[in-house]
Design a binder for these strands. Structure first.
Lengths: 168, 168
DNA sequence: TTGCGATCATAAGCTCGCTTATAATATTAA
DNA sequence: TTAATATTATAAGCGAGCTTATGATCGCAA
C-alpha cells in the first residue's frame, strides 16, 4: 500500500512552493540567457554592474553586502567581469587590503539593452497574470526574503531545537 | 545627470521580479540545506528520489523529462546519489543503452524526515502571509512556469507524458 | 608599542543548472 | 540488408551560489 504515502511525499496537486520557486526562477534565468546570448553579460553580472554603477568606487565587501552575496561569490563574478572588461579593480589608497570597483565605459554601454531584454522576459513570463496578482506575488516574495534573511541564526535555532528524531 | 538613469536601471521600489524570484528561491534552498545538514541528501536529491520512487525502474531519460531537467543534469545527480547509496542503476534488459533506476532502502528511509524539514522551512518562509496570498503565488508561479516552458517548444507534451508513464 | 582579534580579498572545492559533443545502441528508411 | 537517423547515457566545461580556510592588513587594547 504505497500509494497514499506517495501522495504525501510529492503531491502533484499542491507542489512544494519551494520547488515552484526554483522552477520559475530557473526558467526565467534560462529564458533571459537565451534572449541575450549575443550580449557578453549574464543576468547576475547585469545586477552587479548596475549596483557598481550606483556605488562607484566601493569595496567588494560592501558590494557583496549590498547584493546579499557571499564575498567569495562576488569575487568570482568580478574576476570574470574584469576579464570581460565590464568592471575595473583599483587598489584602495586608504586600505591596502581592499580594492575599489569601477564600471567600465564598455560595461555601462551594455546595461540599457540588457534591461530592455529583461523586461521582455518578464512580460512573457507574466502573460495572463493580472496586475493585482503580480503585486501580491512581489509583496509575498519580499516577505519570504525578509523572513529568511532577517536573522538566519535565531530562526534556525528555534526550528532546530524543535525536533531531533533518533531512529533506533 | 546619472541619477534618473540609475532609477531606471535598478529601481529599489519595484525590483525586477526575476531578481526577487531568484533571491527567494536561493534563500529557501539555503535555509533548507542548513536545516538538514545532518542528512546526507539535498533538496534536489530529495525531489529526484521521490520521483524515482513513483517511477521505480524508469530510465534516466524519462525521469529527466518528468523532472524537467536536462539528461546530463540528472545523470550527474544520479552519479552522486548512487555513490551515496540512495539510488541504484541496473542495466535495462530490453535496451542496452538504457539503465533502470531504483530507490534504495536507505534512500527511501530518509524521505519522510526530509519532507518534514522542508515543510518547516516553508512555514518559516511564509510567516505572516495569508493563505489566500499563498494560493495566488502558487497559481502565478504555475502560470510563469507554463508560459516559459511551453514556448520552449513542447514542454507541455513532456510534462503530460511524465504523468502517464506511471505504472499500470 | 606590541600584539591580538576583526576585516578584506581570495583559494579550494562542493552542488546544481546549463550547452555542446560523443560513443553505443535502437530504429527507421532505402 | 544496409545505411541514415534518433535516442540513451555520459564527458567536458561554464556560470552561479555556497562553506571553509588562509594571507594580508587594519584597528583596538593592554
Amino acid at each position: 500500500m504505497n500509494e497514499p504515502q506517495h501522495e504525501l511525499l510529492l503531491d502533484p496537486k499542491s507542489p512544494h512552493i519551494g520547488f515552484l520557486l526554483a522552477d520559475a526562477s530557473r526558467l526565467m534565468r534560462k529564458r533571459f540567457e537565451h534572449e541575450s546570448r549575443d550580449i557578453a553579460m549574464t543576468a547576475a553580472q547585469m545586477k552587479i554592474l548596475a549596483r557598481v554603477w550606483k556605488m562607484e568606487g566601493t569595496s567588494q565587501a560592501r558590494l557583496a553586502n549590498a547584493l546579499d552575496l557571499e564575498p567569495i561569490t562576488l569575487c568570482r563574478h568580478v574576476d570574470r567581469m574584469e576579464a570581460a572588461g565590464l568592471v575595473e579593480r583599483r587598489p584602495d589608497p586608504a586600505d591596502r587590503r581592499a580594492r575599489q570597483l569601477f564600471t567600465t565605459e564598455a560595461g555601462r554601454a551594455l546595461l540599457p539593452d540588457m534591461r530592455i531584454r529583461g523586461e521582455r522576459v518578464v512580460k512573457a513570463a507574466l502573460r495572463g497574470v493580472s496586475e493585482a496578482d503580480v503585486q501580491t506575488v512581489i509583496a509575498t516574495l519580499n516577505t519570504i526574503i525578509a523572513n529568511l534573511g532577517e536573522d538566519g541564526d535565531r530562526a534556525c535555532d528555534l526550528a532546530a531545537a524543535a525536533q531531533v528524531t533518533e531512529d533506533a
